[in-house]
Every structure is written in C-alpha cells, then in structure tokens.
C-alpha cells in the first residue's frame, strides 16, 4: 500500500512499527497505553497495532518503567526485538538502572554471549506548557553511556527509516521523538527503505558556516540558513540523525570546508552534546578554524511552565543567528 504524499511523524512511526511487525514475528511492542483498548498510545503512535497483531505482541503495561524496560531486556536477550515505549523522556529517569546498568552493558559484561536488540521509544520537547518534568532533552546522559545508541529524527521520513534500522539493530537504541512537531507533515518516506544509524544527513550545502543539529532544532537551523542566504552567508546544515554513534566524519569534513561551526540543540547547553562536538572539532581542526565554535542550547534551568518563560527558555532563531555571526568575528 502506498503512503499519501505527505504524512506526519505519528503516522511515520506507526507505519514503521507496522512494517517491522509484519516482517518479523520477534518484534513486539510494550508500554503504557500502547494497546488499542487504551487508544493506541496517548498521541496514537501505536494505534491499530494491537488490533492487527494481537494483545500478545502489543502489550499495554502497568505504569512501571523499570518493569517495562526489564521485560524488554529479558525478551531481547533471548532473541525478540522489543520496542518499549517510555511515554516521556523524563520518565526514563525512573528506569535508569535498567537502561544504563543492564541494556547498555549486558553485551560487554557477558563477553558478547548475549546482546540486547531493543528500541526504547520516548517523546519530549518544550512548547506544550508541560513544565519541568515532561519536556527535557536528556540525550547527553545516554550518549555518555557506552553500549546504547541514541537516535533523534527531525522529520517524518527520517523517523520512518531510522525506526526500521533501530528495530533491526542488534544493540539497544534510544529513539527520541519530538512531541510538538509530531503533527507537522512532511514528505512521505518510501516504504521499506531504511536510513542507516550513525550517518548524518547534509540537508543544505553551504560554504561559509556549518550548522550542526538534530531533532526539532534542525528545522530552526534550516530557517536561519535560509534567512542568512539572502544576505550572502552560505550555511551548510547537518542533521546528525544519530547522536551516538556520532558521525564525526561528516561534520568534520563540513567544518574543514567552511571553517566555522555552530551546534544547536534543545537540551541545555552546559555539558551537552554540543560540548562534545565542539571538542571534536577543536581536536581535529584547531588551526583551520576561521572563528570560535559556537553552541546554542536551552537555558540552564528546568523547563518553565508560563508561556513567555517557556518561549524564552528554548533556543530562538535570533540566538542561532547571533551564534552564526559570532563565528565571523
């Protein structure tokens, strides 16, 4: 069945799960409210799957994050491919032991005898007034942990292709979905076509400065690049797609060409992914840079509720623009 020309990220991930479940009986889905009796997820990402594949393979769970991830780990080490949903990224904190001490480490600690081919789907992102415990970007914690991969798509088509790869991957993958852009339509993917993990995408070619981002803030980088083009600044935009493993080759090649780099993410700036990328750029390209590497991230505070505060908390187009100009100083 062909997809409509444009679909949103909810439809894209739903289609990826559907295609993966149709292709492999070992793919199972578990998480809070994921079954159709519970409306197929609070925003409907898993809608229809339990009706199609049965309650044994698509399981709504108790609100028990440790038990959800533990069940996924156990099933994964004996050959199933669970896709476990942790409703919101902040709730991964409740299951950190299972994710960090177990999912990420069992391959190494067992000397390669077991491995954990599971996906943890989770959504997050500021913009819906959900305040301090429902909107954090915590990817740096997981990227800091050896043994787990971290994926953060920025478009429906990428979400589809990356999800297919994540499910097929033999290592645990944390799959971060941005909630506020769930309903934003984009060009539909080609059915069955996977996007490899660990490979960044150059969304826009440029010669003067490289903008490096992932997840929702890629869209902001594209908007700023478009604006700057009007005044003759040629910005290259790189969508990392996968944060760990990081495609250093692609962004280093780009920065070697442009001599300038700005890293943009919604996570707070201190100790973030941007710091790692900036360090890698300095280590490799110190003498070739034409200006200081810049980082743009959210304000170093919990995500606030009040709308004006929330709007000011996350990176703005202006901040990205200012950062780009700072690389020319």
């Amino acid at each position: 069945m062909n997809l409509p020309a444009k679909i949103n990220t909810i439809q894209a991930i739903n289609q990826a799960l559907d295609d993966a479940m149709a292709a492999d009986v070992n793919v199972i889905v578990l998480g809070e409210d994921v079954g159709d009796r519970e409306e197929g997820g609070i925003v409907g990402v898993t809608r229809g799957l339990s009706s199609k594949y049965g309650d044994a393979r698509v399981r709504s769970t108790p609100i028990s994050e440790q038990a959800i991830i533990g069940a996924a780990i156990g099933a994964a080490i004996v050959g199933m491919r669970p896709v476990a949903e942790i409703m919101l990224m902040n709730f991964t904190t409740v299951a950190m032991d299972m994710i960090v001490n177990h999912a990420a480490k069992l391959r190494f600690m067992s000397g390669g005898q077991t491995h954990v081919p599971m996906v943890i789907r989770t959504m997050t992102g500021a913009g819906f007034g959900t305040g301090g415990q429902h909107a954090d970007y915590l990817e740096a914690w997981f990227a800091h942990t050896a043994g787990i991969k971290v994926v953060a798509p920025s478009s429906p088509a990428d979400a589809y292709g990356l999800m297919l790869s994540a499910i097929e991957d033999d290592d645990p993958v944390l799959f971060i979905e941005n909630m506020p852009t769930y309903w934003t339509p984009g060009p539909a993917p080609e059915r069955g076509v996977k996007i490899p993990l660990g490979k960044a995408s150059i969304l826009r070619e440029g010669t003067d400065v490289t903008l490096i981002s992932y997840s929702r803030r890629v869209l902001d980088c594209c908007a700023v690049a478009e604006k700057l083009a009007a005044e003759g600044i040629s910005a290259e935009v790189i969508d990392l797609r996968t944060i760990s493993p990081l495609d250093t080759e692609t962004f280093l090649a780009s920065v070697a060409k442009t001599g300038r780099a700005v890293i943009v993410h919604e996570a707070v700036k201190p100790f973030g992914v941007g710091a790692e990328i900036a360090s890698l750029i300095y280590e490799s390209l110190y003498g070739q840079l034409k200006g200081p590497v810049q980082r743009v991230g959210s304000n170093y505070a919990p995500v606030p509720f009040s709308k004006p505060l929330e709007d000011a908390h996350v990176p703005s187009l202006e901040q990205i623009e200012v950062a780009v100009r700072a690389t020319f100083k």
């Binding site: 044994a56 533990g70 780990i73 032991d97 299972m98 177990h102 069992l106």
Partner: peptide, 30 residues
C-alpha cells in the same frame, strides 16, 4: 553469564534480577 546452562543475567544491582526474569518469561510465553 552462561546461556548454555540458562544463566542469562547476573546483576550487581539489588532488585534488578526480577524485571529481567520477567522478560525471559515473556519471550517464552509469546
């Protein structure tokens, strides 16, 4: 870990054997 004799996980974290044993059992059940 020794899958040949069914020793699938040995955890150093108090309490963590139980959620994972559930997953092993879940696979068998499915």
């Amino acid at each position: 870990t020794h899958p040949g004799t069914g020793v699938m996980v040995t955890t150093g974290i108090v309490g963590s054997s139980m959620p994972i044993a559930n997953g092993l059992a879940l696979a068998a059940q499915i």
